[in-house]
Amino acid sequence: MTSPNEQAPVALVTGANQGIGLETARRLAEAGCTVYVGARNPDRGTAAAAQIGARFVALDVTSDESVAAAAAQVEAEAGRLDILVNNAGITGPQVDVHDLTAAGMEEVLATNVVGYVRVIHAFLPLLERAAEPSIVNVTSGLGSLARFHDPSTIESRAGSPLYAASKAAINMLTVRYARRLPGIRINAADPGLTATALSGGMGHSVTDGTDAIIRFALGEDRHLTGHYRDREGDVPW
């Protein structure tokens, strides 16, 4: 666990016990942040936090009670939140389009979209106590309508309609929140195709996949708001 440091940025990453979330948390901790690893499974979350020198907070983004308890823990221990990385997400049913159902859509939206709103709402008071608060919403190029209509891109050929729709919703949430909350920098980061359990191990490294997140949180893009970027730069909406 990191030692308390009032000057160090306080960061929370949801869905951080593996993959992009864990690598994001590791890089933030490496940069000197006090990092909270948010995860539903306490065993996996505690192990992940110990691995990178972070703190574990039990956090299920589909539960009001869980998110409220996580916010209370961060408030009691740190008093504020400088960086929120909304990362927890699911792919949802990977089935033929004829077999997609409303229940499947509800499941995806509950985590990928409603979960982001739930976490932002609960942690907004702590973010507003920070000097330069930042929210990074992890999205996907699959949420880009421009890339979908460009036959040269992988996004035009791949991806579940349900998952892609949830990421498009995250993009719109990002720009609307950014406009309504001018005191907080709020951006959408596209990891690209990254080799995680979610992608079946296909794609570039998790370090490459977290580049845009880290740039928004701490790097050269930290002063931007309302932007949609991957590690190469702006992604077309």
Rank of each mutant, 00 (worst) to 15 (best):
M1P: 01
S3L: 10
E6H: 12
A8H: 10
V10D: 09
V10F: 08
L12G: 03
L12P: 00
L12W: 06
T14S: 11
G15W: 08
G19E: 06
G21E: 03
L22I: 06
E23Q: 12
T24Q: 04
R26D: 09
R26H: 03
E30A: 12
A31Q: 02
A31W: 03
Y36L: 02
V37T: 15
G38P: 01
R44G: 10
G45H: 10
T46P: 00
A48R: 08
A48D: 06
A50K: 15
Q51V: 11
I52K: 11
G53N: 04
F56E: 06
L59S: 00
D60C: 03
D60Q: 05
S63L: 14
A71N: 09
A72F: 13
A72P: 05
V74T: 05
E75Y: 08
A76G: 10
L81W: 10
D82W: 15
N86C: 10
N87A: 05
N87D: 09
N87C: 11
A88P: 10
I90L: 12
I90R: 07
T91E: 13
P93N: 12
V95I: 05
V95S: 14
V97M: 13
D99N: 15
D99Q: 12
A102P: 12
A102M: 15
M105P: 07
A110W: 09
A110D: 15
V113R: 05
V114D: 14
V114Q: 07
G115D: 00
G115P: 14
Y116W: 05
Y116M: 07
R118V: 01
I120Q: 06
L124F: 13
P125I: 14
P125Y: 01
L126V: 07
P133D: 14
S134G: 09
I135F: 11
V136E: 04
V136R: 05
T139C: 10
G141R: 12
L142I: 03
S144R: 01
S144M: 02
A146Q: 14
R147Q: 13
H149E: 12
E155P: 00
E155I: 05
S156T: 12
S160P: 00
S160A: 15
Y163E: 05
Y163A: 11
S166C: 12
A168F: 00
A169R: 14
N171S: 02
M172S: 08
L173A: 02
L173D: 04
L173N: 09
T174Q: 07
A178D: 05
A178E: 07
R179N: 10
L181G: 01
P182Q: 11
I184L: 04
R185I: 12
I186E: 14
A189H: 03
G192F: 08
T194N: 05
T196H: 15
L198P: 06
G201C: 09
M202I: 05
G203A: 03
V206W: 01
D208S: 00
D211H: 15
A212T: 08
I213G: 15
I213R: 14
R215Y: 02
F216T: 09
A217T: 00
G219K: 11
E220H: 14
D221H: 08
R222Q: 04
R222N: 08
L224S: 08
T225V: 11
H227I: 10
R229I: 10
R231W: 13
V235F: 01
W237Q: 10
